[in-house]
Deep mutational scan, measured.
Amino acid sequence: TFTSYQLEELEKVFQKTHYPDVYAREQLAMRTDLTEARVQVWFQNRRA
């Protein structure tokens, strides 16, 4: 599960791009204290 802060950050990036590159995902992962893999999976699920 994600915190409301994490979801907010993820959604913010999703609004800009549905396909963030690895750099964007790593920045987001650091900001949200998630792994890059978790961020990647979240985007895959969000796009589905």
Rank of each mutant, 00 (worst) to 15 (best):
V41G: 12
E9C: 07
A37R: 09
R46L: 02
L10Q: 00
Y23K: 12
Q40P: 01
V39G: 01
L34H: 01
Q40R: 14
F14G: 00
E36L: 11
A29I: 08
K12A: 08
K16Y: 10
T17S: 11
Q27A: 12
L10F: 04
L34W: 14
E26I: 13
V13T: 07
E9Y: 04
A24R: 04
F14T: 00
T1N: 12
L34F: 01
D21P: 05
P20V: 03
R31G: 04
V41C: 14
L7Y: 05
R25Q: 07
A29L: 05
A48D: 10
R46A: 07
E36G: 05
Q40K: 15
D33H: 12
E36A: 10
R47N: 06
Y5T: 07
M30L: 13
T17E: 09
V41H: 14
E11N: 05
N45W: 14
N45Y: 10
L10K: 15
L28P: 00
T32D: 01
D33W: 06
K16S: 09
E9S: 04
E8C: 13
Q15D: 07
D33T: 06
S4P: 14
L10I: 01
Y23P: 06
F43C: 03
N45Q: 14
Q27K: 08
R25G: 02
Q15E: 10
V39E: 00
D33P: 12
Y19N: 06
F14L: 02
Q44F: 07
H18V: 06
T35F: 03
Y23I: 11
K16G: 07
A29D: 15
P20G: 02
K16W: 11
V39T: 02
R25M: 14
M30D: 07
P20N: 01
E8Y: 10
Q15F: 06
Y19K: 03
F43T: 00
A24F: 14
Y23T: 11
D33M: 11
E26H: 13
Y5I: 07
T1E: 13
A48E: 11
K12W: 05
D33E: 11
L7G: 03
V13L: 15
Q27L: 12
T3N: 08
Q27G: 05
E9T: 05
F43G: 00
T17G: 05
P20Q: 02
T3S: 10
V39N: 01
Q27C: 09
Q44M: 10
L10M: 14
A29Q: 05
R31L: 12
A29G: 08
A48S: 09
S4R: 12
M30E: 10
F43E: 00
A37Q: 10
V41D: 15
A48L: 13
T1D: 12
R25C: 09
A37Y: 10
R25Y: 07
E8R: 10
R47L: 08
N45G: 07
L10A: 01
R38H: 10
Y23L: 13
W42F: 03
F14I: 15
L28H: 02
L7S: 05
F2N: 02
T35M: 04
E36F: 07
E36R: 05
Q15Y: 08
A48C: 10
A29S: 06
Y23G: 07
A24G: 05
R38P: 01
Q40C: 13
L28K: 00
W42S: 15
L7I: 13
K12L: 08
T35K: 04
V13N: 02
E9K: 03
H18I: 09
